[in-house]
Nucleic acid binder design. Structure first.
Lengths: 242, 242
DNA sequence: TGACTATTCAATTATCTACTTGAATATGGC
DNA sequence: GCCATATTCAAGTAGATAATTGAATAGTCA
């Protein structure tokens, strides 16, 4: 043989340790949050650190661990370093982890409820339902993530209406059509908050059952604004003057 | 609200820590090996400990960690406790980890080569190829895993011929038909060893590109010997007397 | 060039992990 | 009830991990 049965156990240990190191990269809740954010598109360190409520130094260390493990890659743009997922298999791994947690972690529903609030009163639509209703044109779809995430990829036909601006821009929404809100995924509060806000203002609103990354992963059509600067004119909701 | 924005960060931390704990369960190479074995079917502690070359006490602790994390469940049968994967999402998670490692861990090919040996000379067939050739009946398919694993599920039409017995039972194989060997999955040595052994003896042999769990996961037909006792008459290769 | 900003590095701390060893439980056969 | 076997528990150790703090790089822009 090729020197393999020489020490099969040692080689097997090293091989499976390599698989273990991939899992270890996601074994920290903070790194799981990072991957969830990067699933929306690339981000510089400082923004990630704000999202996960950690110091920049600590976030940088988490990111470098993810980088060494191969799950993310970097791109320098001037003084900023943008991190992104290395490929679609990384997102699929993240989705697989959520799925196991959903299926087999007893407390998960409680934890989700205490972060997301009570979802029982809020209606949701599936991806295929939304797709049909988009084609027949009888809904307004809003992307309630930060505009930057909308810019790096969104559902065609959706308008960008970040949940933080929702209160100020309610008048831009029709009140004779159902509004469908979507955000980062099944454990993101934005769409839920948006639906709650809209309902409170008498606008019929539902949410997409999961988020943009799941839509994209399912192979459904997506659209991106190529080069959008930070504080740029961006797609808005229904034009005021109409 | 429902007491959620009271401490959204704390709730988010706990939720994502729960996802992290799922990944952490697979962050040890030894536990990854355990999951790979349990993907073949349930197993008692002592056998698992032998497979992963660890003491029974240490293996037991790994298993209990997997149990607490929700990835495995147990069944008592007399004095033995059989561990098994809690559900299909756990296998999918394991497959997702391998896939990320394959795509993004630089040294993986080297590690795999040093455990599995040089695969370049050995032919493999895909699942769909194998399925077609099974239907046209022009191949002999052998399951080279330990017979117990064959018993708890195998490809219909395959015969059990554990790689450890292959040398003694070569005469049970036809030498006028191609033999297809399969085993536990893409990082299992058994099918590779079997193909090498058969080729050395002048029998045309190829391997299935991956293993039984992948076949089953793909939704292809499977077959199981329901209640098979440990040292029982088992399905054998071609009958001697024919 | 020099001030400014984004990111990384280095050193430290408290906590956790994998594995070992030896003893404790629990079940089934006699 | 008692022995044998399978599994778990408990205590200990060496090494790893997440987060903190403060300093060091490496680009940008005036």
């Amino acid at each position: 043989m090729v020197g393999k049965q020489m020490d099969g156990r040692h080689a097997k240990t090293e091989l499976f340790d390599a698989f273990g190191s991939v899992a270890k990269a996601l074994s920290s809740g903070r790194r799981a949050e990072i991957v969830d954010i990067l699933a929306q598109g690339e981000r510089p360190v400082e923004e990630i650190s704000r999202e996960i409520s950690q110091t920049v130094a600590n976030t940088s260390q988490h990111l470098q661990l993810l980088l060494r493990a191969g799950l993310v890659s970097t791109r320098r743009d001037g003084t900023r370093i943008y991190y992104s997922l290395s490929g679609p298999s990384v997102y699929r791994l993240w989705a697989a982890i959520r799925s196991v947690a959903q299926d087999h972690v007893a407390q998960l529903d409680d934890l989700a409820a205490s972060y997301l609030g009570d979802r029982s009163a809020l209606q949701s639509v599936t991806r295929s339902e939304l797709r049909q209703r988009l084609q027949s044109g009888d809904v307004t779809v809003i992307d309630v993530r930060p505009q930057q995430e909308y810019a790096s990829g969104h559902i065609p036909g959706a308008i960008s209406l970040p949940v933080k601006e929702l209160d100020k821009r309610l008048d831009q929404l029709p009140n004779d059509r159902t509004v469908v809100a979507y955000c980062r995924g099944p454990y993101c509060v934005y769409a839920l908050d948006a639906v709650r806000t809209l309902s409170r203002h008498g606008i019929e609103a539902v949410r997409l059952e999961d988020g943009y990354p799941e839509w994209k992963e399912a192979g459904l059509p997506v659209e991106a604004d190529k080069q959008l600067e930070p504080g740029e004119p961006r797609p808005t909701a229904a034009p005021r003057e109409s």
